[in-house]
């Protein structure tokens, strides 16, 4: 069985670490937040403000705003659009994404 990287014969630079709620996960140069989270086996990273239901990627192109996440203290970023850099601090979010801020 082959992987997408093998299919496209991709040779990205060395992996780096970012944190998801303080836990270290690996990411590759060029990966978006969503791609790195998928690779780490994470498919949901926010809960809705009404029913508290889990959500992750839906449209994958920045239209639906389902994949909202907090990156380096910026709330409500779209995980499918934002590329990762070494040391980025990713946080899952609840509700409006501003709920834990005074």
């Amino acid at each position: 069985m082959r992987t997408p990287r093998e299919l496209a014969d991709a040779h990205p630079g060395p992996a780096f670490t970012v944190t998801l709620d303080g836990r270290e996960i690996e990411a590759l140069p060029g990966q978006t937040v969503a791609a790195a989270l998928w690779a780490a086996g994470v498919t949901s990273w926010r809960t809705t403000r009404g029913e508290g239901r889990p959500r992750g990627v839906f449209c994958g192109i920045g239209v639906c705003f389902d994949c909202l996440i907090t990156v380096n203290d910026r709330a409500n970023q779209r995980a499918c659009l934002v590329p990762l850099h070494a040391g980025d601090d990713i946080r899952t979010q609840e509700g409006t994404g501003h709920d834990d801020r005074p």
């Binding site: 997408p4 991709a10 969503a34 791609a35 949901s44 839906f58 994958g60 192109i61 499918c80």
Partner: peptide, 20 residues
């Protein structure tokens, strides 16, 4: 989570070589 749009699956694959 795990339900995505067909175009989204394709965009994630083409753009970041990622599958869910």
């Amino acid at each position: 989570p795990g339900v995505i749009t067909a175009g989204g699956a394709q965009a994630m694959l083409k753009g970041t070589l990622a599958t869910a």
